[in-house]
């Protein structure tokens, strides 16, 4: 369960940062990304997948959340 810091970049895309791994990636897709539901599976541009427990509102970015790693993506 790594802690992931999430923020929006200038283009409005979600940027993923995992401090422990110095991993900085842009999210390609998010399973739920509407004003009243956010979370689920997130696919990063390097192919790895993470999972966030869905919440009922958009988080207030930037924010640190816990994520589950779904596959190694290597």
């Amino acid at each position: 369960m790594p802690s992931v810091m999430l923020k929006k970049n200038a283009e409005g895309k979600l940027v993923f940062y995992v401090p422990k791994k110095d991993l900085e990636e842009v999210a390609e897709s998010i399973e739920f990304d509407t004003p009243d539901k956010w979370g689920g599976e997130v696919l990063l541009s390097d192919g790895s997948k993470y999972y966030f427990d869905p919440v009922n509102a958009q988080p207030d970015f930037p924010v640190t959340l816990r994520a589950k790693r779904l596959d190694s993506g290597e």
Partner: peptide, 8 residues
Amino acid sequence: YIARHMEE
């Protein structure tokens, strides 16, 4: 690190 912290 500290910049990211202040951002959040």
